[in-house]
Design a protein around this nucleic acid. Structure first.
Length: 203
DNA sequence: CGCTCGATATTCT
DNA sequence: GAATATCGAGCGA
């Protein structure tokens, strides 16, 4: 039995949590009638989002109905709907001296339940089946009803297990934002071929 | 391959 | 009214 990451793990600086989640294993448990389906994959890409001091964060203006989870207990699923068609999955994480924070899960390498992910995505191409926050959410059947879910329990439906982390991770600017572009708060597994975008290597 | 554009909920101005 | 933590279709080279 692999250890489920607990609130101690998530109650650390958001940046550290985002970095350390790379290499961990994201697990989604779907119960359909009498059947239990397990979907899982290695996290290969994350982004950290902070509080008032982070102009790119949903939490920058203070708590609202949408971002409330970022201000609550750590280790909770922060799910939001964006661009009118996509869900994104985050996990709340912060140290005690920060008042909001979350880590956006951007990409996994599918390991278990690949066929179910394909049918949820309506795609056959496996290489990018869960690469990109919208695709990841669709491949794992993430919806608004999961917002606020306790991810520190393996019974909740979504949790993260201990995994083998790479020796180091790349830190790059976050994707799709226009403020605080220079902050390198995106973390990727250097050896993964399943990233939502290729890492720009400086020459 | 790379670029443009439409979809369209939620929040901000 | 404008922007957005996105994706995929359509088009041209």
């Amino acid at each position: 039995m692999t250890r489920c990451l607990d609130s101690e793990f998530y109650s650390r600086p958001t940046l550290a949590v985002a970095r350390d989640l790379v290499g961990m294993r994201l697990v989604r448990t779907l119960v359909i009638g009498r059947e239990t389906i397990k979907l899982a994959g290695k996290i290969v890409e994350t982004e950290a989002y902070g509080a008032a001091d982070d102009p790119a964060s949903h939490a920058r203006m203070g708590p609202t109905k949408r971002n409330a989870v970022m201000f609550g207990q750590t280790g909770r699923a922060y799910v939001y709907f964006t661009y009118g068609s996509h869900h994104c999955l985050n996990v709340s994480a912060r140290s005690f001296d920060e008042n909001a924070g979350a880590v956006l899960l951007r990409a996994i390498e599918p390991e278990e339940g690949v066929d179910t992910m394909k049918s949820l995505r309506r795609q056959e191409t496996v290489s990018f089946i869960a690469s990109g926050p919208g695709r990841l959410a669709q491949a794992l059947a993430i919806e608004m009803s999961l917002n606020g879910l306790d991810m520190t329990s393996s019974k909740s439906g979504v949790h993260v297990e201990e995994g083998i982390r790479p020796r180091f991770v790349y830190a790059t600017p976050r994707i799709g934002i226009s403020r605080a572009v220079s902050r390198k708060w995106r973390f990727v597994d250097p050896s993964s071929a399943h990233l939502s975008r290729k890492v720009q290597i400086k020459v």
